[in-house]
């Protein structure tokens, strides 16, 4: 290991590493800690986050060392072109798996809108369910009155788009967020071009602007949630509309947070001068991820807010 020489014909296989098994341990502690917290709260207890944060810390610190090691190996010239292609395949198909994760929630949204709610409202092959159980329920989307409105209190107002004419003054937050995120996809591309042109000042500037846009998106997303909870009466327990709304926008927001975090790390790496025109996979992977969350948002804006 000590004398590992950079030989571009050799596909670098690290001899061993303590990181993966510790990451697995951290992940286990994290999820079981979260599970214990949830079960404790459900049982009426206060719940403790200690184990969750312990696991998260182990996970995060270990990943830091892991990635640092990979960056260091690359700077020693150990990563040949073929290894870098493996990274490209890996990241590409990881993003595909993320697409399928969102597909599950979009599928739930479409199924609920097209089938479940209209059947409950007395249409189609399973209309009898609605007729027997909740004859008064009328199907509409967004669902404002749930079949059992005592158990699941419907929202007072939905998030549906007020029509293009009303997007500007006062500004309609989801529209503003669409603009912010689309703009950030463009700026991250400018940052990439700056790497290709070996212009570090521009790289740092455009990446910094991307981050500002990303965090602004998250800020307004939080504002929107507060507005929904406090003024619209739209909560997680508002029935199927609230369920699909929050799981889709929530997991998207979580992915934006992750993407912004990854880009932040790339920002600091850019400050340290890590990237070269032909050697900037960390940045590229982060930017692909960022484009991906952008595309998901566009789908969300269309299917959750407008249609």
């Amino acid at each position: 290991m000590a004398n590992a020489k950079a030989d571009p014909s050799i596909y670098f296989v690290p001899h061993n590493g303590w990181y993966p098994v510790v990451v697995a341990l951290g992940a286990m502690l994290m999820v079981t800690g979260f599970g214990s917290y949830l079960n404790d709260v459900k049982g009426g207890g206060d719940g403790s986050w200690v184990q969750f944060y312990t696991g998260l810390t182990i996970l995060a610190v270990t990943l830091f060392f892991w990635f640092a090691k990979v960056i260091e190996e690359n700077s020693q010239g150990l990563a040949n072109a073929q290894l870098k292609r493996s990274y490209v395949w890996g990241m590409g198909w990881f993003i595909f798996s993320e697409v399928m994760f969102f597909a599950a929630f979009f599928g739930a949204l479409f199924y609920a809108r097209v089938f479940a709610v209209s059947w409950l409202g007395g249409e189609g092959g399973k209309a009898m369910t609605g007729d027997y159980l909740w004859p008064d329920f009328s199907a509409e989307w967004p669902v404002m009155q749930n079949p059992d409105n005592a158990l699941f209190q419907g929202p007072d107002q939905s998030m549906a788009s007020p029509g293009i004419a009303n997007w500007f003054a006062p500004v309609y937050l989801p529209f503003l967020n669409t603009v912010l995120l689309l703009a950030s996809s463009v700026t991250v591309h400018f940052a990439h071009t700056a790497i290709k042109n070996q212009d570090r000042t521009k790289l740092i500037t455009w990446l910094g602007i991307t981050l500002v846009l990303g965090f602004a998106f998250l800020f307004f997303q939080v504002e929107e949630y507060i507005h929904a909870y406090q003024e619209l009466g739209l909560t997680l327990s508002s029935g199927i509309y609230g369920s699909t709304f929050y799981i889709l926008t929530g997991f998207h927001g979580f992915h934006v947070t992750m993407g912004a975090f990854i880009l932040t790390i790339q920002f600091f790496r850019a400050l340290k001068g890590h990237f070269k025109p032909d050697d900037c996979f960390g940045f590229e992977a982060a930017s692909w991820y960022w484009h991906f969350v952008d595309v998901v948002w566009v789908c969300l804006f269309i299917f959750v807010y407008i249609l």
């Binding site: 409950l120 749930n146 079949p147 059992d148 699941f152 997680l236 327990s237 029935g239 609230g242």
Partner: peptide
């Protein structure tokens, strides 16, 4: 949430 609960 009520993904799998018809009451919601």
């Amino acid at each position: 949430t009520s993904f799998f609960n018809a009451a919601g």
